[in-house]
Design a protein around this nucleic acid. Sequence first.
DNA 1: AGATATGGCATCGTATACGATTCTGCGGCA
DNA 2: TGCCGCAGAATCGTATACGATGCCATATCT
Lengths: 225, 225
Amino acid sequence: MTSDAPAEGMTASKSQLAYEWLRDRIVSHRFTPGYRLVLSQLAAELGVSTVPVREAVRRLEAEGLVTYEKNVGAQVALVDEGEYVTTMQTLAVVEGAATGFSAPLLTNEDVSKAREINQRMRDSLEHFDPRRFTELNEEFHKALFLHCPNEHLIDLVHRGWSRLRMLRSSTFSFVPGRAVESVTEHDELVDLIENKADPIEIELAARRHRTATLDAMLTFQHAHD
Amino acid sequence: MTSDAPAEGMTASKSQLAYEWLRDRIVSHRFTPGYRLVLSQLAAELGVSTVPVREAVRRLEAEGLVTYEKNVGAQVALVDEGEYVTTMQTLAVVEGAATGFSAPLLTNEDVSKAREINQRMRDSLEHFDPRRFTELNEEFHKALFLHCPNEHLIDLVHRGWSRLRMLRSSTFSFVPGRAVESVTEHDELVDLIENKADPIEIELAARRHRTATLDAMLTFQHAHD
DNA sequence: AGATATGGCATCGTATACGATTCTGCGGCA
DNA sequence: TGCCGCAGAATCGTATACGATGCCATATCT
């Protein structure tokens, strides 16, 4: 598992602070793709030297949020449209697999918890807030692969989410109609789990669910050219 | 795609050199898991200051090859047995998916190329060299997901391989018998692709292929306790 | 005028220095 | 004896300093 936050009660290092500060600005789109990250500037703004900032930047590079060129510098990663597509595809694969591995291990309680979250999603459709809806969506899926015994896989899912947040604040803000379908598919997915369906079937259902969101996004976009 | 090597003709930075130097020692098992990486020592040995070494270590941390503890230091990542299992599982998932995405796009030429590699694997069974066999194995699978349009996914496969190399020099040196089965399954996999089977079927076959190697490893190990 | 050389500026890359933190082993105390 | 606390050493974390590199504007040559 990737540690994004420092241990509790421990004074975070400056490089850690710089990392969080930068990451926050990037995922919240205050630093937009292409924005040049000049070490001395950031250091001055943070009130630290360039060394910890440099480390933070390299760390973000390793996560793909920032691109780096030797002797030139860093900038917030530029993303072509394809990036969004491949990230969603990859996420479909790994999230699906994690869900499939987890499904047989979920208790009845886990399942009702998931249903409850989905109900909250359904309720929120009235006063639709894409940001909030996406948060709940992550919470829902997290509840499903809760017991996936493969830490790596879960880490990959989190990385995917993180990358996605950087690319788009929320897919549902682009294709609002997709939200309703999504909630329905969630119920179907939980049904499969509750009925102890073949894990492979569950995995593929979870994958299709995300692929469907991607397709909705793409067709919507093509229609508006 | 993760850039592990610097661009051609460009003098590599010292941090890059330190990174390669360290990584090489870790994957070749000259630095064994648990080995403490003391910045000043490494710096002295490399003839550089601690700063670039530090950067190299953090980079390796991001890749999971070393673990790091604030104010304490780094060591080559310790791996419990479970690590090997989860890495193989994850690899089964992503490599399978990459193969599935690539399969419909492979030309006849690509397919014969893969068959040729597999034939070389079969030939090498006479004078069996696990290391060499593993190399050919990677080459074979690389030929299969050659046209996978999803860069992320391919990157994940490479990361998986890299991690695996660190955990074990070669699975086949532990379970020599698995090599023969492996070659057979390769042929079956290529058959599926050649017959334009459903990509999902191809994906799951590729996944089972790797899972089978994992299972062989585990049963072999259990038998020797 | 257009292409090429040149100088200066912005920024990166790394060395060195030093304070901060953690670990270790020893001595005192119950 | 066994536990606590306290130097001292080892090591990390960061600031500062400066050389190296790439970029851009201007000057020079054809």
